[in-house]
Structures are given as structure tokens and as C-alpha cells.
Nucleic acid binder design. Structure first.
Length: 257
DNA sequence: ATGCCGTGGAAACCACGA
């Protein structure tokens, strides 16, 4: 089976591109981020017509996450990350799809750093670590997919020296990601491509995509019962090259049934 | 280089992204 994650940067503007990609790439599960649409304006009918059951958590203007399941109705488990009742941003949704627990997340960007947005990012990371530990302890097959807004290592950025002070690459954030993975998760794309440069995001500015000035910030973390079934991973770069593309490309993994 | 592009919301500019 194929599981994908795709930061669409506005599902209203991206709907034609999204539907084309779903038809071509045919993922069994697709986690979306940055819907940028209120709950009632999610294009549910178009997604269902494309053959997908869907749960989503929208918000006016910003953020927004969804989980699509081909030919299935996933069962929503939660639509907020626990640990802060004051945090109302739509950055997390979790569902059961068959026997797999799937989470779609949009981790805070955190810029400018330092500052309150960076502090919020680190607090969000702390909450994610607590919840992820619980998911691991369940011994279920779990995938936590999405836009982590983390460049894990020098290999994941075209020009590390330009990003040292950025909230995506600062030591505190890399350390938080490292500690999260060290709970026992497998970074699926890196596991399948241990030494290769793999990017998932390219700025719209200055022909970043044409220059391949990219970042790897969209990740899949797999629990051990799912990681043992991992057979492949890749990035649909051709989708990023199209007209009216998101600044992220769809990323996917394949799992033995 | 530090908003150059793109999106959405509100109001013909602004916030925000990474």
C-alpha cells in the first residue's frame, strides 16, 4: 500500500492539481496540510467523488489538516494534539484506517527565532513527544506524517550555512526531532535513502525549484510494526514542477500488505 | 539577499509562510 503526505498550500487553489495527483499517484492514504480553508469550505464532495473517504480539521485562513483513505471511511481518533486546551490551531488530526493509526500534522514554523512563535514550536514538540510515546506504547502500526517544519540534518538542506539561525534548522529543533525519532520511530524517507539528498520543499522565490535549492521537511515517522513493512519511498517532483503548484511536493512511502 | 512568490481574508493592502 502507498501512503502519501502533501502540504497543498491552500486546498481551494490546489484542488485541480490535487485531484490530478490523486488520480495519477493513487495513494491508499493521503495526509494533507495547510488546507487554509474553514471547516465548512473543505471540498468534501470532490474528494469523495475521487474515491476517498476523508476526515479533516479546517480553520479560517491558516493551517488545516486532513486524512484521505481510498475506498474507505477512516475513523477519527482525535483532532487536536493533547496537552494544551488553549491551543486551538488546526495542526493535528489522527484516524484509524484499517489496522493502521494515521496522524497528519502541521508542526508550527517557529520563525522568527528566538521569539514567542519559536517558543510555541518547542512547546508543540514537547506535546508531540508525549503523545508519540503513547502511540508507540500501543504497539500498533502507526504513521505520523506531515510537514514537520524541521530540517533534520545538513544532508536535508541545499545550503546549511544559510539556515543556521532559522527556526527550521536551529539546534534546539534538530535536537527535538532527534529525540522524538529516538523514542523508537523510523524516519521512513531517510531509511530508504540513507545517503541521498531528498528534498520535499522549494521556495517559490528565485527559481528555487529549478536550482534544486530545496529542503526536506515533510516526514513519515513509522512505529516498528509498520517500519518492518517499509518497501519504498519517494517524492513526486514532477508535481512541484507544474503550473500552479504548491511549494511542497507530495512525498510517499510504500508498505507491504 | 530575508518576502523577490503565492494564498487567503479583508478591503485594494496585509499577515503569513520557511
Amino acid at each position: 500500500m502507498k501512503i502519501a503526505t502533501y502540504n497543498v498550500n491552500g486546498i481551494t487553489a490546489r484542488l485541480p492539481s490535487l485531484l490530478r495527483w490523486l488520480e495519477e499517484s493513487h495513494p491508499d492514504i493521503a495526509c494533507l496540510q495547510e488546507l487554509k480553508a474553514p471547516q465548512e469550505r473543505f471540498p468534501e464532495a470532490a474528494i469523495r467523488d475521487a474515491g476517498y473517504g476523508v476526515v479533516w480539521h479546517g480553520q479560517k485562513g491558516w493551517n488545516g489538516v486532513a486524512i484521505l483513505a481510498r475506498g474507505a471511511d477512516s475513523i477519527e481518533r482525535r483532532r487536536v494534539l493533547p496537552g494544551d486546551p488553549e491551543d486551538l490551531l488546526s495542526r493535528y488530526i489522527e484516524a484509524s484506517v484499517g489496522d493502521i493509526i494515521v496522524a497528519s500534522l502541521y508542526l508550527p514554523n517557529g520563525n522568527p527565532a528566538p521569539g514567542p512563535k519559536f517558543d510555541y514550536k518547542l512547546r508543540w514538540f514537547d506535546r508531540l513527544m508525549l503523545h508519540a510515546a503513547e502511540l508507540l506504547a500501543s504497539n500498533a502500526p502507526v504513521v505520523i506524517a506531515g510537514d514537520y517544519n524541521v530540517i533534520p540534518t545538513d544532508l536535508d538542506v541545499y545550503s546549511p550555512e544559510r539556515w543556521v539561525d532559522d527556526a527550521l534548522f536551529r539546534p534546539e529543533v534538530r535536537e527535538a526531532y532527534r529525540k522524538l525519532v529516538a523514542q523508537g520511530w523510523v524516519d521512513a524517507v531517510r531509511a530508504m535513502h540513507p545517503t541521498e539528498r531528498v528534498y520535499t520543499f522549494w521556495k517559490y522565490l528565485r527559481n528555487a525549484f529549478e536550482r534544486d535549492a530545496g529542503l526536506r521537511i515533510d516526514h513519515f515517522l513509522l512505529s516498528p510494526p509498520l517500519a518492518t513493512r517499509l518497501t519504498g519511498a519517494g517524492v513526486d517532483r514532477d508535481v512541484r514542477a507544474r503550473e500552479k503548484a504548491s511549494d511542497h511536493a507530495p512525498v510517499w512511502i510504500t508498505i507491504a500488505d
